[in-house]
């Protein structure tokens, strides 16, 4: 299990790094756009489309799992974290497995959707013909790793020793 855990962490970190780089690219592109347009009257026209189609989905979904690992997803916390006894264990598992099911379905459906776009060679007609398959593929990638994380945690996280 430890090896799987390590691989999963590496995967999450790699996707997170991609998301971070995406954000820096956005900063550079928008500033370049503003500067070019003020000084030279030539905008970096592909910036808007690139950001909207690829960069925003990337930096919003690639780190889903890493953020979950760090406890970064907003949850209510005025109820005790661990309930005692068997119900407590059940709640602990459901808390992870139900979202795993949900995101599993998201991966399945959005993955099929992306695959379709690849097969049909769908493009968004913009400054250039943007291939939509690559844009759509980002969501199942980010959500897919989250599913692995949720299942891994459900399987490995010990029932709470302290009650």
């Amino acid at each position: 299990m430890n090896v799987i855990g390590t691989i999963l962490r590496k995967l999450e970190d790699a996707l997170h790094l991609l998301g971070c780089l995406g954000l820096l690219v956005v900063v550079v592109l928008i500033n370049a756009d503003i500067l070019m347009r003020l000084v030279l009257h030539v905008p970096v026209q592909f910036q808007f489309e690139l950001t909207e189609l690829y960069l925003m989905p990337a930096l919003a979904t690639l780190s889903l799992s890493r953020v979950f690992r760090d406890g970064g997803h907003l949850a209510l916390d005025f109820v005790p974290e661990h309930l005692p006894g068997v119900p407590g264990v059940v709640v602990d598992k459901l808390r992870l497995l139900l979202p795993a099911l949900f995101f599993g379905l998201v991966v399945w459906m959005s993955g099929k959707f992306a695959l379709h776009a690849f097969q049909r060679g769908e493009v968004e007609y913009g400054v250039v013909d943007w291939p939509l398959g690559w844009a759509y593929a980002i969501v199942p990638l980010g959500c897919g790793v989250l599913v692995l994380r949720l299942i891994y945690d459900a399987l490995t996280r010990e029932a709470p020793a302290q009650v």
């Binding site: 769908e122 968004e124 939509l132």
Partner: peptide
């Protein structure tokens, strides 16, 4: 829907 309906555009 230009990706699915290019001619309609």
């Amino acid at each position: 829907h230009t990706d699915a309906l290019p001619l309609n555009s």
